[in-house]
């Protein structure tokens, strides 16, 4: 590999190094995975593409070159790196460019006991706002007709996927679930928590994942967990997190009391759905979009973490009082590089 001095080692531009305090990673946003590297290798990783092999041999002493060659061989084997005599033909991805053609891309509606929603109006507003992903969470047991009522108007043009997160009940399993997935093809996931067992399978229609979980959930406080399972290694998420909050950007929510919020777990409310519409809040409520701008690079702890552009984040349950502090449910310590689950 290091035979032709004119060749430049290059990372494929979809393989993006992210420096953490102790550990670093190279995110592969095309195959949606990553490899870990010690941060001591980060500097040389950033040299990839800048120097030809001949120039690297000048820049580093022989012992270092051996290590570099081994390291590059590993990257090459992993298909993160290639050799070319024309490095300028391979420009970097413009990761600063993230855009969405809608005001709101995702919404959470929590369903509680003290208020009945007018789903028709809610879905109308979400459609106008261009919402693509909807999550409906229900902490108490509801009947099938309730879900029918909630989902009735979801066949709008804009929604791509709907997730139901609902309390397990022996009445809503098997046949009712199949009925829902048949009738509402946008359903992509149904999670039944407080279930007697853990299990998951694909619906008969093949496009909805049914998950039975023994997790005990009583309210929105279950949310906000930071885990590798929730990391997104795709180009959209990676570019969005450069300048926007990975959780709250373009999100709107209704909590179980009917209060319109950025997320059901946040304290600040922009008014009750009884008095205000989602449209009003999303388009003109004072400060509604402020939190969207808190990017990972601004958050203490996270800004030194190598997972900051793929992490799901949470702005509701925090380490300290500051809006710029780390999610309290994250156990990862980027300074020691330990405890990532």
């Amino acid at each position: 590999m290091f035979t032709n001095d004119d060749n430049y080692p290059m990372l494929y531009s979809c393989c993006l190094p992210v420096k953490g305090y102790k550990n670093s990673i190279i995110c592969d946003i095309q195959r949606q995975s990553y490899i870990s590297i010690p941060s001591t290798l980060y500097e040389i990783t950033m040299d990839i593409g800048k120097y030809s092999i001949g120039q690297l041999k000048m820049k580093y002493v022989d012992e270092d070159i051996e290590i570099i060659e081994l390291y590059f061989r590993y990257l090459w084997e992993q298909k993160y790196l290639f050799y070319t005599p024309f490095p300028s033909s391979f420009p970097k991805l413009d990761i600063g460019d993230w855009d969405e053609s809608s005001v709101i891309t995702n919404a959470i509606i929590d369903i509680g006991e003290d208020i009945a929603y007018n789903f028709k109006d809610i879905l109308h507003d979400l459609n106008v706002l261009g919402c693509r992903q909807l999550q409906i969470r229900c902490y108490s047991i509801k009947s099938l007709s309730f879900f029918d009522d909630a989902l009735e108007n979801t066949d709008s043009n804009n929604l791509d996927a709907i997730e139901l997160i609902i309390a397990y009940s022996a009445d809503i399993i098997d046949i009712p679930i199949e009925y829902l997935t048949n009738k509402y093809p946008l359903l992509s996931r149904i999670v039944l928590f407080n279930a007697p067992l853990n299990n998951q399978y694909l619906s008969g229609t093949g496009n909805c994942l049914i998950v039975y979980s023994t997790q005990q959930i009583d309210d929105e406080t279950h949310c906000g967990a930071i885990s590798k399972d929730f990391f997104s290694f795709n180009i959209k998420a990676f570019t969005e997190s450069q300048n926007w909050n990975s959780c709250l950007n373009r999100k709107i929510s209704i909590d179980k009391h009917g209060l319109i919020k950025n997320c059901p777990s946040m304290k600040r409310s922009y008014g009750s759905i009884v008095e205000k519409s989602l449209l009003e809040v999303a388009l003109s409520a004072n400060g509604f979009k402020d939190l969207w701008h808190i990017k990972k690079d601004d958050i203490s702890g996270c800004k030194d973490c190598e997972y900051r552009y793929v992490c799901s984040d949470c702005r509701a349950y925090l380490d300290e009082d500051s809006m710029y502090s780390k999610p309290v449910k994250c156990r990862y310590d980027p300074y020691e590089a330990i405890h990532l689950e």
């Binding site: 494929y12 531009s13 979809c14 095309q30 195959r31 298909k79 290639f82 300028s88 033909s89 391979f90 420009p91 970097k92 991805l93 413009d94």
Partner: peptide, 12 residues
């Protein structure tokens, strides 16, 4: 399984 690498390219 082994998706081809696809990257931006600058034409000469």
């Amino acid at each position: 399984e082994q998706a081809n690498r696809i990257v931006p390219f600058k034409l000469p």
